[in-house]
């Protein structure tokens, strides 16, 4: 029993230690961010790898999510004779929740794992050490550009997700089911608020961008320099990012609804 308790305690301490180390890395990343903007092509390159390379998965998933939303929404709404509200349903669900959240989850799986594996391997093969011995700060040169690329890419991907999702919903609702074209858009416009819904969605995705990218970077940076260590770190990136995104989503949503 005592052994169990002490193990539990040690695990908790390890968690807290990792949280602190992550916060420290975040702090250093912000401090050494100058170079990622002075030499913006470093960041640009990472936007290409995290953002552009995620385009396909984001667009395809958004399309299907939008279509499913429209199908499911229609099924329920028509029972209450308000199938015109399908546009509102699709748009609000996407802009407020699914756009930022699903994008962040996909981002963690697609770009987050890539970042963790890359940095973990750079550490394993002593590339980070080599950089440090060349008097080049790896946080400024490797971590910060990837961080800012993630923070920039995430809202763009989320906006794209929402827009493509709405188009997917439109395709199912209007040509396929036969909801009136005008009603679809006008109901949507009457009920989706720019400030309360769209801007809040963008804020959410910005926060998710910071969280997901930072978690991926920290896990890579903290990975034990072995093949096994890197593979575990990659798994942890997905698990921790997903949980963090869902938890943060709840916190942010409650803030936004209250304020």
């Amino acid at each position: 029993m005592l052994g169990f308790l002490s193990e539990l305690g040690q695990r908790m301490i390890a968690r807290v230690w990792r949280l602190g180390a992550g916060a420290h890395l975040f702090f250093l990343t912000i401090i050494y961010s100058g170079e990622s903007f002075r030499r913006f092509h470093l960041t640009l390159r990472e936007i290409y790898f995290t953002g552009v390379m995620s385009l396909l998965i984001i667009i395809v998933s958004a399309f299907f999510v939008g279509m499913v939303l429209a199908l499911q929404g229609y099924n329920t709404l028509q029972k209450y004779g308000s199938s015109e509200a399908i546009g509102v349903l699709v748009a609000l669900a996407l802009v407020r929740e699914l756009g930022p959240v699903v994008t962040a989850l996909l981002f963690a799986g697609r770009a987050g794992t890539a970042i963790t594996a890359e940095i973990g391997l750079m550490k394993t093969t002593e590339q980070l050490s080599a950089m440090e011995m060349m008097a080049v700060n790896p946080i400024a040169r490797v971590v910060a550009p990837r961080f800012w690329a993630g923070v920039i890419a995430m809202p763009i991907l989320a906006a794209l997700f929402s827009m493509v999702g709405v188009l997917g919903g439109y395709l199912v609702a209007v040509p396929l089911i036969g909801v009136d074209d005008g009603a679809f858009w006008s109901q949507m416009q009457a009920n989706v608020d720019f400030r309360d819904d769209i801007v809040n969605g963008v804020i959410k995705s910005l926060v998710f961008g910071v969280a997901c990218t930072m978690i991926a970077l920290f896990e890579g940076f903290d990975a034990p320099p072995t093949a096994e260590g890197v593979s575990h770190a990659t798994t942890r990136t997905v698990v921790i990012s997903s949980l963090t995104v869902l938890g943060l989503d709840f916190v942010l949503t409650s803030f936004m609804l209250v304020v």
């Binding site: 906006a159 493509v164 709405v166 720019f194």
Partner: peptide
Amino acid sequence: SLLGLAMKVGNL
């Protein structure tokens, strides 16, 4: 897409 959301989906 952000513009699209603002103009076409939202009430901006």
